[in-house]
Structure formats: structure tokens, C-alpha cells
Amino acid sequence: MGKQDVKGKKVIITGANSGIGFEAAKALTAQGADVVLAVRNEEKGKEAVQNIKKEHEGAKVSVMALDLADLASVKTFADAYKERFDQLDILINNAGVMVPPYQKTKDGFELQFGGNHLGHFALTGHLLPLLKATPSARVVTLSSIAHRKAAIDFSNLDGSKGYKAMKFYRQSKLANLLFAKEFDNRLKQAGINAMSLACHPGISATNLFKVGGERMQPIVKSLLYRFFQTPEMGALPTIYAATKETLKGGEYIGPDGRGNHKGYPAIEVPAKGVYDEKTMRKLWDVSEELTGVVFDFS
């Protein structure tokens, strides 16, 4: 069993102007998919489109504005997409911020939980009608090995009772993983012909690793590539989750090397006790409450 044919399939990738999202976009357009890069910075998005078209003449790729740290922007994007297309085969919830100083989204959420989790939660909810209307649709949400030491602190989601950047990053990536699994459970319960999966890139040398907001020094970059995956390799779990025919939904895909830091994609078992049903349900309810987006599984 190989990869599904993605020719002519409609794909959205968030944060696809650089790093893993960009590599996934390149790979899927090369296979004939029609890809929308959903990005905050439209100029960078247009540049990415040009770069993809240079490599693959006739590539079907376009850019649309999406700011996951602004729920109004998320709704505007989803409405605009639904006007333009009547199907959505693959949604890749890829965009993310990592360990920023304490700041809030437009709606007052802590930036990492708000952008990495709640923004994608709301986006998926708004696009659910299209996913339901598209046979065998897939939603792929990016988590991280950082989820392993994480817990969801429901009493301090906004960071007002203290903020540690890495702790909140871990929390957001755990939320991504729990959302992906709970969403798949609910799709199956409702008998909807769609699946939700999670994946992670191992440790990839991407723009997330910008030091102090500046691009890395060449020496740091060469060290990163020695110890970590290239963005091309880091994108493989995403592509695998989006296209592998044998997947049933609910799986977690990551690199197969030591500690899942590097390697080729394989089904991975998350840390023990991660899929706690009570936590998953609570996170879902809190996410619907905070975003005002209620998923319609009927």
C-alpha cells in the first residue's frame, strides 16, 4: 500500500511560507495537488508561491491571508475559502510560534496556546462543513516531541498567573495532539468519512529556531543541520500523514530514529497516559467556549 493520489485534491497548509509547511506544499504541488498557503504575511506567501512555481511549472498553488492569533481573521479566511472552493481534501494545521516572550493574541489568549491550538481549533471547526462534504478528507495537526513533558494547566491558560515560554509551548503542542485524537474520535462516532491525524517533525532546523528574532549565524546553522533534520526530512511525517493510504485516523506520525528526533516517518506511540479521555473532553469543551466555535458533527 502506497501513497494516495493527491492529483487535483484541494489542500490548505497553514504557515506554509517557510520551513516544514513550505516543504510539504512543495511536495504536494509536485504531486498535482491544488494547494492554498494560508499565511499571516502575504508578501512572504507570494514569494513562496513564486519559488514553488519556479521548481514546478504549472504548479497549482495560491496564497490566502490567515492570522491564527485573531479569531476574526480565522473566520474571514474560512468564509473566503468556502466561497472559492466546494471541497477540502487535506487540511494541514502546521503554523506555530515557539517560545516567544509573554504576549497575547487579538482575543486575549496567551500567544502559543491561542495561535498554535485555539486558532487551528477554530479554523478546523469553520471548515468542518467542507471536510464533511469531501469523501475521505484528512486533517493533519502538527504536534512536537515537546508534548512529552507537558500538562494542560486549565487554571492558567492565559499565563496571567505566571508564564514560562517553554512550558507554554509544550502545553500548546500537547493541546495539538489531544485535539487531533479527540477530533478523530468524534468523527468516527458521528460516522463521518474523514479522519484526523497528528504528526511531528522530530527536531528540524527551521525558522522556528531563530535566535533573538534574527536569522541564525551560518556556524549555528551548520551545527543544527548536523544534529537535526533538514526541513525536507522534517516535512516527511506531514506528507505521510496527509497521503499514506493505510492510515485509519487517530495515528501519530514521527521520525523513526532514536528519540524520534530524526529519521523517516513511522507510526509512533505517544508518551504513556497522554490520551486521557477526561482531559481531552475538557480541552474540547474549553476550546469551544473560548473560541465560540462549536463543531457540527450532524
Rank of each mutant, 00 (worst) to 15 (best):
T279Y: 03
L91W: 07
A16I: 14
R40P: 05
G249S: 11
Y169R: 03
D67C: 05
L174C: 12
G15V: 09
K75H: 03
E251D: 06
Y252N: 06
A175Q: 10
H147A: 12
A59S: 00
G257R: 05
F85I: 02
H200D: 01
Y252M: 02
L111T: 09
G292H: 08
S143L: 03
F183W: 14
I12D: 14
E214D: 10
G8L: 15
D296C: 01
L290T: 00
P135E: 05
M166Y: 09
I13K: 04
A16E: 14
L208W: 04
T134L: 07
Y264E: 15
Y81W: 09
N176R: 00
R226V: 10
A65C: 07
K167M: 04
A25L: 13
A180N: 07
V269W: 00
R186Q: 11
S204H: 01
N51Y: 00
N17T: 12
E42P: 02
I219N: 11
D276C: 01
F209K: 02
G32D: 01
L123R: 12
V140F: 14
P218A: 07
F113N: 06
F183I: 03
L71I: 07
N185E: 06
P101V: 12
A150K: 12
N41Q: 12
M1Q: 08
V293G: 10
A33S: 03
H117L: 05
F295G: 03
T141G: 07
I239W: 10
L37E: 11
E214W: 08
I90K: 11
N193K: 13
F295R: 01
L197C: 04
H120L: 09
I145R: 15
K262T: 15
K173T: 03
K272H: 09
E55V: 13
L208E: 01
G96C: 07
A242H: 01
Q112V: 07
A78W: 10
H56K: 14
D153Q: 14
L71W: 07
G115E: 13
K164F: 13
K46C: 00
E289L: 08
K282Y: 09
